[in-house]
């Protein structure tokens, strides 16, 4: 069983590094049709060609293969420690092939661990559940977009933002304006409203796992997502920040309970290469979505 999980996780890592889900590809293709300037069109064409070649040849689409973040739901019969060991092994093998670039650097010595294993990495979110199967969601979160992912606290007098959805809206517009092309626009924006500083960032990243074409189950947030998608694209920053109509591909928001004293707005900016994949292992059968 253990070897089976390791092998399946390696395939999950391969898929994540070398392919993009169809909702993202379709949105990029529509953006290409919709753009007018040569520079914006060129960027999107290169992006689409690149993903095609990466998929055909099983190459990492981007050399920054990011930080692997796992969300794992497991049945009671599984050992969390064993899952972690097997997934670490899969990450090691993926770093040798290489589906993953060695991306774990010791912050004190500057030494690269060489295999993506280190203090605090990979990131695992484990949760036992009552289902009888294993579900593993994986995101490879790139560093360039991580650098333009800010956390605000409301009220924010420079933005004139209060502790309400209008305040949230202003924070998101501010973050995307300040990011310009630096996060490899067109970006995908995960927004967590409330929570603590740590839980909020994790939730903002988890929101990026949602399909582009789904609806937020909270009507207020659904409306905010739609409005921001339109307004952020009005900024005209465009692909790679060269100017254009496509600054973001999707906005996904989530609300968490907060302390009375705190109101954080946490933004997970992701590059266009939103490498997210899901794997299910049920009765020995592996499926990927």
């Amino acid at each position: 069983m253990s070897e089976h999980i390791k092998k399946a996780t390696l395939e999950l890592l391969r898929r994540a590094a070398t392919t993009l889900p169809s909702d993202i590809m379709n949105t990029l293709a529509r953006a290409y049709e919709n753009e007018e300037s040569d520079a914006a069109k060129m960027n999107l064409k290169v992006i689409l060609d690149n993903v095609r070649i990466a998929g055909e040849q099983s190459l990492p689409m981007c050399q920054d293969t990011g930080a692997p973040i796992f969300w794992i739901h497991y049945p009671r019969s599984y050992s969390q420690a064993e899952l972690r060991r097997k997934m670490n092994e899969a990450v090691r093998v993926a770093s040798q092939i290489p589906y993953l670039r060695p991306n774990a650097v010791d912050s004190i010595t500057g030494k690269n661990s060489g295999d993506n294993i280190g203090a605090g990495v990979p990131v695992y979110h484990f949760e036992e559940w009552d289902e009888n199967y294993l579900k593993v969601e994986l995101m490879l979160k790139g560093g360039g977009s991580e650098n333009v992912s800010p956390q605000y606290k409301l009220p924010d007098s420079s933005l004139g933002g209060g502790r309400n959805l209008e305040g949230v809206r202003r924070c998101v517009i501010d973050a995307v304006f300040k990011a310009q092309g630096l996060g490899c626009a067109p970006g995908v924006i995960g927004v967590a409203i409330g929570g603590n500083r740590d839980t909020a960032y994790a939730a903002a990243k988890k929101a990026l796992m949602r399909p582009f074409d789904d609806q937020n189950s909270m009507p207020e947030l659904n409306e905010l997502e739609q409005r921001l998608l339109k307004e952020l694209n009005e900024l005209g920053i465009g692909p790679m920040g060269f100017g254009g109509k496509t600054t973001v591909l999707a906005v996904k928001a989530v609300a968490l309970h907060r302390l009375p004293a705190c109101f954080f707005v946490s933004i997970a900016y992701n590059c266009w290469a939103l490498r997210r994949q899901t794997m299910i292992i049920k009765g020995g059968e592996v499926s990927y979505d």
Partner: peptide, 28 residues
């Protein structure tokens, strides 16, 4: 084009040499 790593690598015909690999690691 940021993120277009596979396509960019296709333009690299040859790696002639590498310096400071041991000290800096692969990415640096």
């Amino acid at each position: 084009v940021g993120g277009a790593g596979a396509l960019a690598a296709a333009s690299v015909k040859r790696v002639k040499n590498v310096y400071m690999l041991e000290e800096f690691g692969v990415p640096e």
